[in-house]
Each structure stands twice: as structure tokens, then as C-alpha cells.
């Protein structure tokens, strides 16, 4: 069943989906183009509840290679899915999963400070978690069956 939106609602929701897709795709794409890119530094800088896990990944060559691969291609897949609206709801879930990892590896806790400078000031809530909630909306208020390749797939 296609959801019913006013055209303004449809425009707003599609814009949200496409912007997040754009962001994911470009994050993945630049990492893909940079042969020296590695998540090791980011993972090593982790703090909070799961810091041990993220440090362990950074410390193990094959785990790190797997994390790098999944991150780059995960970002690109989610980005493409949201941008052109193909398997868009799965893409939204995948994106939420990635964002959950980023959030948990660098939670903006009361006493946490990171080597990696952030561009704003955050306490508990940061842009990762906001983008995660935004993706939840994208998931719940699907637009890809109206504007997107999913429209064609749904027909069959």
C-alpha cells in the first residue's frame, strides 16, 4: 500500500531521505577514493561503554580490514539506497545501525573528550544520534514507493 501524503509532506520527507543518502554516499565515496584511509585512528580514539571492543578491532589487522571494508561499502550502499530510493527501508535500517556504531564509539558523555575535534558542542545528543532518529522517520514514513526505484519494484 502506498502511504498518503500531501505534496508538501512528500517533498519534505523525500528531501530528508535524499539528503541523508547524499551524506552517506559521499562519506563512503571519499573513503573509497583515499587509499590511505583507515578507521584505526577513529577506533583508537573511542571512549565510553564499548571502547574496549572498538580498541580491539583497531588492534587486530584482519578485524580492522573487515571494519574498513564494511564501513566504506556500507556507507555507499546505504547512500545509494536512500538517494535513488532502492530498497530504501533496508537502507534506512542499515544506516541506523552504522550510526549506532558511530554514536557508541564516541558517545558525547559528560566527561568524555576526544582527540578528534568536533565541529560543535554536544552533551549526550550529537548529530549522529539526530541523524539516526531522522533515518527512523525515513524508515517509518517511506517515500521510495512514490519517488524512487522502489515504485517500480513494488508494482511487480
Amino acid at each position: 500500500m502506498k502511504p498518503k501524503y500531501t505534496s508538501l509532506q512528500l517533498f519534505a520527507l523525500t528531501a530528508l531521505r535524499v539528503s541523508i543518502g547524499w551524506h552517506f554516499f559521499y562519506e563512503g565515496f571519499t573513503k573509497l577514493l583515499n587509499p590511505n584511509w583507515s578507521s584505526a585512528g577513529y577506533l583508537n580514539d573511542s571512549q565510553g561503554w564499548f571502547a574496549g571492543l572498538f580498541h580491539a578491532i583497531a588492534g587486530n589487522q584482519s578485524l580492522l580490514a573487515a571494519a574498513d571494508f564494511l564501513n566504506v561499502w556500507g556507507l555507499i550502499a546505504v547512500g545509494v539506497g536512500l538517494l535513488i530510493g532502492i530498497f530504501s527501508r533496508y537502507a534506512a535500517l542499515g544506516g541506523m545501525l552504522l550510526l549506532a556504531f558511530y554514536y557508541l564509539s564516541h558517545p558525547p558523555l559528560m566527561n568524555a573528550s576526544y582527540s578528534l575535534p568536533s565541529e560543535g558542542s554536544y552533551l549526550w545528543i550529537n548529530k549522529n544520534i539526530i541523524e539516526l532518529f531522522a533515518l527512523w522517520l525515513v524508515f517509518l514514513f517511506n517515500t521510495s514507493s512514490i519517488i524512487g526505484i522502489d515504485r517500480l519494484l513494488k508494482r511487480k
Partner: peptide, 18 residues
């Protein structure tokens, strides 16, 4: 078809610009 493919040019634009 137009509605289904409406956002595809964005992917091309972003790839080119990137």
C-alpha cells in the same frame, strides 16, 4: 517512470562532483 527515477540524476551529480 519519471517519479521512480526522479532522484537518480542526483546520484550521477554527486559522483561527478565527488
Amino acid at each position: 517512470l519519471l517519479k521512480a527515477l526522479a532522484t537518480v540524476p542526483l546520484l550521477g551529480t554527486l559522483t561527478y562532483a565527488g
